[in-house]
Nucleic acid binder design. Structure first.
Length: 876
RNA sequence: GCCCAGGUGGUGGAAUGGCAGACACAAGGGACUUAAAAUCCCUCGCGGCAACGCAUGCGGGUUCAAGUCCCGCCCUGGGCACCA
């Protein structure tokens, strides 16, 4: 048909127009209120942008356009998370030099985003791997160093044998590398850390300040893992040493019948008796060899050996044995525990296995009275027994006999024990310091120098950036040193302090350093004297709305919060939380071929039950052994659907509309092309209706003195209801229902005025409807909207047009249809004026023939009238 | 094991405690067409000729009224997992 929407031509035209007119460039000097929104920046890969990215970018783009039309000065930038493991692994896989690959791939992403009609201000584009960017990443490293928040330490770290680098705790998921799923190992290496632990309390408390999904906040709370308790010293018999333990249940100290040290505990060798030395040594060796993943498996049965030593329980005066066991972790608390088998399940299992005494601190009259009668630990039951200190003990008699096993008792006991000097109150966190060193090439070099005279010396700010040298071969070595260590010209330098020969630090920073501040750079991306001017930071930040995947809950989102707080403390920023509101988009899932793992791949206790078949593997793979599954689209799985194909076939507006309509923003979606036909059809339907109305369109419809007939009133009611509904839905990020409201409107418009031009013909109404519909569509299908807007004779684009205002008077229904129920079952319907009185409605309902039939032989007990909804006649 | 989401037609999904299935997709039938595409019309939860009855993972409960609230299960997805 001649009036089909010519999307190829029209989309290209408006994309050119927007570019040439810098439609989306954001001025810094506008009087309008600011709105800063951001999608998590992607790393550019060779597979290009996927329709999966669109599930995040497209709805937020529609939201930006809506905000702009509402009169906000919208900042909507885009950049590239170009440094770090993801980008480097991609380069390795493709045998490319990342230095050349990244700009090429980024250009392809940018091209695709423009093709989707995304409203980014490209003049603010940043790339974290360029020297003018990473100069400031290094500057922030030095800031942390100066503030005592960056330090070097040697400890067993998480090592990915495939990526050949150390990983932060947050980058280990179920014992596997976040990038390649390899089982991580332990390796002792000297590494740089950021002291995020020092900010643990504030990271926890300030979660209350942000509008984030509750689940994500909860994940951060659990990751931080704050735990209040106390530390207790146990004097080792026949030694001057004492063993300090952390416990959250000091009230059960009376039931501590043995101590357990982690195998790595520094006092193990010290306290072990000669008779036990051999067994202990063997156990320590075995524990060191056991993969961390296995050690963390709670299902495993307990193991351990006695050291032969004993310690004094400070409240009972008893000597209790000291054991070592791998269920105690060196990395948490003091690396030693007091075991209370009666009230802790882990200790109970251990005591049973090795026949250690179990002493009850709390008991119930009907429950077990001795440890021997217990079948499991009782952490929360009973009342406290009486404890009389032995003559050996310095401690006074317990005043808590009879108290219930409750939080209040714990609190009171801790206070009392602290007063007695038995314990010291203490808070512990599960959070560990952030390991930032990577033994990899593709990252920001850590700006430190190791001088034989002065020790570690920071590179002076004036010498930044420490440039990443250009190399031919950059693959990780696996030696525990980064490839930079072999580049003499890079390594050899002079000490900034004393001038003697010195070596540069050769590790680079993990990519999460770059992404911990990129949202600041967008406000002043070309500043060469500061990371961003304070004036612009104050104007734009914090980010009002941030969207991205939930998988970053304890990685990027935690790190960025930490850096923000450090910068606040340094007086660089005036806010403590970077992202006021956060939303997570759902993923697009692709139907992906896979196979069962082979024997060697199902290692450890974490069972991988399915492995993706890479496209190259699939060719020769027996068809009947392929197991198909829905998995997230990702370039590593080779199951990416390109938006280019969709734009070619259906147009960007169709793809935009479809990705927003198919499901709620947060939901995962099984990708299929089926639904996009519907979106495409709708666009044509809307286009055709508006185009046919254009001959009668007048931009001056507002001042028309036309009187409205019933059909006019009805369609205007629907129109204004839709304006209100779409606005509300957009505010709530409910793109799918906003679009369905627009579809309803278009369906009604066809009833008002069919394509053949019959039906009602009030030009003012046609004009109002055509114009309003165009503007309501603009956030979703901006190319079509701008084309229609210009055909209506308006200058410029819908991006700068005003969002329609819904008139509640016009939208109000004058009549409503009520459902009439008898005992909850629908029997009839009545139509009444919307302001009808409750009495009148009751009477009408009772007069219905169907109602009278249903009431035959019954007595009406009650009539419930729900305004604008229903009438329920209760009868018996 | 613990913590979060979630379970609604053939499919995606919609429903401030108030008509379950809006809006779409797919399917079937029809119109137009030489034909196809496009477009338009009709049908479309299950059972029943119908009146009606039954239906929101399962079992209870609260309520005049439950997909929605409460209790107990089952299943799926995500996160955490010997953190003392």
């Amino acid at each position: 048909m001649d009036d089909r929407y010519a999307f190829r031509e029209i989309e290209a035209r408006w994309q050119t127009y927007w570019e040439e007119n810098r439609t989306f460039a954001t001025p810094d000097d506008s009087d309008k209120p600011k709105f800063y929104t951001l999608e998590m920046f992607p790393y550019p890969s060779g597979a290009g942008l996927s329709v999966g990215h669109g599930k995040n970018y497209l709805p937020n783009d529609a939201f930006c356009r809506y905000k702009a039309m509402q009169g906000f000065n919208v900042l909507h930038p885009m950049g590239w998370d170009a440094f770090g493991q993801p980008a480097e692994n991609e380069a390795i896989k493709r045998g490319r030099n990342p230095r050349e690959m990244v700009p090429e791939y980024a250009a392809n992403y940018r091209r695709t985003l423009k093709r989707l009609g995304a409203s980014y201000d490209w003049s603010r584009e940043v790339n974290s791997s360029t020297p003018d960017y990473y100069r400031w990443t290094q500057w922030f490293f030095l800031l942390l160093y100066k503030r005592g928040l960056a330090y070097r330490s040697t400890a067993p770290i998480n090592w990915c044998p495939s990526c050949k680098t150390g990983l932060a705790n947050e980058e280990v998921k179920e014992g596997r590398c976040w990038r390649c799923d390899s089982a991580v190992e332990k390796r002792p290496l000297p590494q740089w850390y950021f002291n995020i632990l020092q900010y643990a309390d504030r990271l926890l408390a300030d979660l209350d300040l942000v509008n984030w999904p509750e689940g994500t906040k909860q994940m951060q709370r659990e990751w931080i893992g704050r735990s209040e308790g106390a530390e207790v010293n146990f004097a080792v018999n026949g030694s001057t040493e004492s063993i300090r333990v952390f416990t959250t249940r000091p009230d059960t100290l009376w039931g501590a019948t043995f101590l357990v040290l982690a195998p790595e505990h520094p006092l193990v060798a010290e306290v072990t008796t000669p008779e036990q030395a051999e067994a202990v040594e063997a156990y320590v060796q075995r524990a060191a060899a056991t993969a961390d993943m296995d050690r963390l498996n709670a299902e495993r049965s307990k193991s351990g050996v006695p050291t032969g030593a004993t310690a004094l329980n400070p409240v009972t005066g008893q000597d209790i044995p000291i054991w070592i066991a791998d269920y105690v972790l060196m990395g948490y608390g003091t690396g030693a525990i007091m075991a209370v088998p009666a009230h802790d399940q882990r200790d109970f299992e251990f005591a049973r296995k090795f026949d250690l005494p179990i002493e009850l601190v709390y008991s119930t009259p009907e429950g077990p009275q001795t440890g021997g009668e217990m079948t499991e630990a009782a952490p929360h039951d009973g009342v406290m027994r009486e404890f009389t200190p032995s003559p050996m003990s310095q401690a006074p008699k317990s005043p808590f006999a009879g108290r219930p096993n409750s939080k209040e008792t714990v609190r009171d006991v801790v206070r009392w024990m602290a007063e007695q000097g038995i314990v010291e109150q203490k808070v512990n966190f599960k959070l560990r310091d952030w390991l930032i060193s990577r033994q990899r090439y593709w990252g920001a070099p850590i700006p430190m120098v190791h001088c034989p005279e002065c020790g570690e010396v920071p590179v002076p700010e004036g010498q930044l950036p420490v440039l990443l040298p250009e190399v031919d071969r950059y693959e990780p070595s696996g030696t525990g040193e980064s490839p930079l260590a072999t580049i003499e010209e890079f390594v050899n330098t002079s000490c900034p302090k004393c001038g003697s020969d010195a070596r540069r630090e050769t590790d680079t920073m993990g990519g999460f350093a770059c992404s911990s501040w990129y949202f600041l750079r967008f406000v002043d991306p070309h500043n060469s004297t500061e990371f961003a001017s304070r004036e612009k930071l104050d104007k734009w930040l914090p980010v009002d709305l941030y969207t991205g995947g939930a998988e970053h809950a304890v990685m990027h989102l935690l790190y960025a919060r930490f850096w923000t707080k450090v910068m606040y403390d340094a007086g660089l920023l005036g806010f403590v939380e970077p992202f006021t509101q956060l939303r997570h988009q759902g993923s697009l899932l692709a139907y992906t071929p896979g196979r069962k793992p082979r024997g060697s791949e199902a290692d450890g206790d974490t069972v991988l039950d399915w492995i993706v078949l890479k496209p190259e593997e699939r060719a020769g793979f027996p068809k009947d052994q392929i197991a198909w599954r829905w998995t997230r689209m990702s370039k590593s799985k080779g199951n990416v659907v390109s938006p280019d194909e969709m734009c070619e076939q259906f147009g960007a507006d169709s793809l935009r509309l479809y990705e927003m309509f198919v499901a709620p923003f947060e939901d995962n979606v099984q990708w299929s092309e089926d639904g996009i036909h519907g979106a495409h059809r709708f666009i044509n339907r809307a286009w055709r209706w508006i185009v046919r109305a254009l001959p009668q369109y007048s931009a001056k419809w507002r001042s028309s003195s036309a009187s409205y007939n019933d059909a006019d009133k009805k369609i205007r009611r629907k129109l204004h209801q839709t304006i209100i509904k779409v606005g509300e839905d957009l505010e709530g990020f409910r793109f799918n229902t906003a679009i369905s409201a627009l579809m309803e409107l278009v369906n009604d418009l066809y009833l008002y005025r069919p394509l053949d031009g019959g039906g009602a013909q009030t030009p003012a109404v046609l004009s109002e409807a055509a114009e309003t519909l165009t503007l309501l569509l603009a956030p979703f299908t901006p190319h079509m909207a701008d084309e229609l807007w210009s055909r209506m004779g308006h200058k410029g684009t819908t991006y700068t047009a005003a969002w329609p205002v819904g008139d509640t008077q016009v939208a109000a229904e004058d009549e409503v249809t009520l459902v009439v129920q008898v005992n909850g079952k629908v029997r009839d319907r009545i139509t009444v004026a919307s302001d009808a009185s409750e009495e009148a409605i009751k009477q009408l309902a009772l007069d219905c023939e169907k109602v009278r039939e249903a009431l035959e032989g019954k007595t009406v007990r009650q009539v419930i009238v729900v305004p604008k909804r229903l009438v329920n006649v209760v009868a018996a």
